[in-house]
Simulated assay, not measured.
Amino acid sequence: MIRAYRFDGNDELCLRHGPDDGPALLILPPLFDEANRVRHLMVETARALSGHGIASLMPDLPGCNESLVPLDRAGISLWQASLIACTEQLGPVSHVAAIRGGTLLDGALGDLPRWRLAPAKGGQLLRTMLRTKIASDREAGIASSSDALMELARTQGIELAGNSLSPCMIRELDAAAPSEGSAVRLARFADDPLEAEARIAGAPLWLRAEPAHDPAMAASIAADLAAWMRG
């Protein structure tokens, strides 16, 4: 079901699945172009959670998806404020699940229990997008470097991977890292050598060139989330 929440003078959309009564899980997908590649996965995960009897909210952030706000007006702090507004209007929320760059935002609601899949620092996301731009520039016969692009981005903003990012966004993103918390469940993919409390079937869809879906991954994520939320 599509709901709407009011933030900064605009109506932003939010997908809600599951029962209407009781608290919900707030779902935070990856950021920027990575979000486009896993949108289907996230929606199917929310539907699978509904089958477990768990409600979920997946809001559009200002400047993203169907939002009418230009992305170059957004920043990490603005997105966190929008999540507070969303959950106050459409909540309550009892748990938060975030993937990749979404983990940069999951501390907005305080120390709620948090589930994280493959968390990433903001600087890591920036470097990935910069590498893509440098490769694109090279194909166009343009010489560019990460240092020069970052210097420009911090003062004038920049377009990376089709996203128009303001100087504010660049500075906040470069400094952003997943916040610490007392109740964090860390999930990683089965072949990831790093330590984790949960293992998810499949491989990162955000690394693919085009959007894709993996039904087994959606089921795996939903099952782990449901078990975690029920304790």
Rank of each mutant, 00 (worst) to 15 (best):
E195I: 13
P19W: 06
D214N: 15
A209L: 11
Q89A: 14
E180C: 08
M1K: 12
S166V: 06
L28E: 03
T128S: 13
V96G: 06
L61R: 01
L173V: 05
P193L: 09
G53V: 01
G75N: 07
K121S: 12
I142E: 01
A135M: 12
L104M: 09
R138W: 11
W115I: 11
D60N: 10
I54V: 15
A108T: 00
L207V: 13
Q124P: 00
S56P: 09
G181V: 01
M229F: 10
R6N: 10
L105Y: 12
G9F: 07
D106I: 08
A35E: 05
D214V: 02
L117A: 09
D60Y: 01
D21Q: 14
D11Y: 00
M1G: 13
D60W: 06
M229P: 09
A140H: 14
K133N: 03
A143Y: 09
L28W: 06
C64R: 10
H17L: 03
A203R: 15
L152N: 00
R188M: 12
L109C: 07
D21H: 14
V69D: 07
A97C: 09
H52K: 05
H95K: 10
W206F: 08
D224G: 08
P70S: 11
A48R: 12
A148N: 05
T87S: 06
M169T: 13
L149N: 08
L41Y: 00
E210I: 08
E34Q: 15
D111R: 10
